[in-house]
Nucleic acid binder design. Structure first.
Lengths: 240, 240
DNA sequence: CAGAAATGTTTTGCATCCAATATAGCCACA
DNA sequence: TGTGGCTATATTGGATGCAAAACATTTCTG
């Protein structure tokens, strides 16, 4: 009951705009979950989170409900909210969903992309490769986050708010899955799929871009080791 | 402030399982919105809904928040919740999203469908055509709802919980859009796309089923008249 | 000593209460 | 008579309090 929840920015991020504190709490928690600063299964006690952010349980509850809708948190009646702990089954469904949606997004992107967008992508890519070369857990986190952001940027350019929301959810869930099942941590070992993808986009080559997207998703998925899960539960039951 | 909100089942549906009253309120409101018993733009006052279902505002808020996540309700800070009133732009995005997702779903369905599923589809189809032949607003509502349910059944058979959730949202939004912009009301005038689709599924003909699905979505979209919206806002500004 | 029952503690679910904000009604004034 | 500002009212945002459920601990019993 001490300093258990390591949400880093605790107490500090006094809502910038002062409006919609639930939203900003959601964002902080979401970042913490996606960054794996909060391990799957961690209990998110309303009171604890509340004191941490210095708000009442009411607003915490709203934030947790939002996260539950995105699938990042699972609430059990009368038991509380827990950082969700996707099964291998769910992990596969996440990527199956992305395989459906992202090729469509990339097509829309090619239809609508502007030179300004392209340069934004390029500078993002530069930051990504920078993270990839650095060492340490922090850099790894930044890399995973940046990688997800690339896909979110694509979704934004595609110009469909609904699909953008779906991608938001899928990218967050993917990060969680990668954090859980990712082998080694080098999620995109060797490949630099994003750069290739961007080239195809710039060339307005839809089929090629779509193929690259599918290949990219395949790469991410191939880096997962979905067996471990059973062992983890076992270990959980025995030790820690 | 009298009997304003016509949610029909008001006060009666005392939660069957007694658990999660917010969920059942959400379901009632959702049905009412999709059925167009609650017109787009209608204000959903927390207090009013609360008395109607005989719960406190707290739980109503939770229900409204859920609906907001699905896009069926729009909440404006310090102003309250309103049945959402999709713009033509949003309407197009709904169908663009379905065009991406549903062909994938139909492919998954063909991979996993069982004879039991097929017969369930058949009996559902029978009910659908029955509604189509009846007259009156109630039958029309039932027809729209049944039509949406067909797509939801497909999503269920596809076996991907995430996509199923997305389809849930998309179907609900579609119903709202059809209610708003649907020409004449005969949403599927003449065609019986669902039957054809089911035939293709039964024949395990993926390309054909996908093509039929796209054509079907096209039919629905073709029945919309997306111009009116501007006129409505104008009329809104003047009268009522 | 093991397992079950009971008791105390913690945490959630929900109703209620208060302050802040928006809406509506009213009056003054040009 | 119409417009602008002011007061009153209604409604939301959010904190608090209380009952019930889950959980942990201790005590009792075979």
């Amino acid at each position: 009951m001490d300093k258990s929840l390591q949400i880093a920015e605790a107490r500090l991020p006094l809502d910038p705009n002062q409006e919609d504190r639930a939203q900003s709490i959601r964002d902080s928690l979401r970042d913490a979950i996606v960054d794996r600063r909060l391990a799957p299964g961690t209990k998110l006690s309303e009171a604890e989170v509340g004191t941490l952010f210095d708000v009442s349980r009411t607003v915490v509850r709203a934030a947790l409900q939002m996260l539950a809708f995105e699938g990042l948190v699972k609430v059990e009646r009368n038991r509380g909210a827990f950082v969700s702990d996707p099964t291998p089954e769910e992990a596969l469904q996440v990527f199956a969903s992305r395989r459906l949606i992202e090729p469509g997004i990339i097509a829309a992107v090619i239809e609508r992309v502007t030179p300004a967008d392209v340069s934004a992508f390029r500078s993002h890519l530069a930051a990504e490769t920078r993270h990839k070369q650095e060492r340490g857990a922090a850099a790894r986190r930044a890399e995973i986050k940046a990688s997800g952001d690339f896909h979110l940027m694509l979704a934004a350019v595609a110009g469909n708010a609904i699909l953008q929301k779906f991608m938001d959810e899928l990218v967050a869930r993917s990060s969680l899955v990668i954090a859980l099942y990712g082998r080694s941590g080098a999620s995109s070992c060797g490949h630099n799929d994003h750069a290739d993808l961007l080239d195809a986009v710039e060339a307005h080559d839809v089929p090629r871009a779509q193929a690259l997207m599918l290949r990219h998703i395949g790469h991410i998925e191939a880096d997962l080791d979905l067996r471990v899960k059973a062992g983890l539960t076992l270990k959980d039951a025995l030790a820690i």
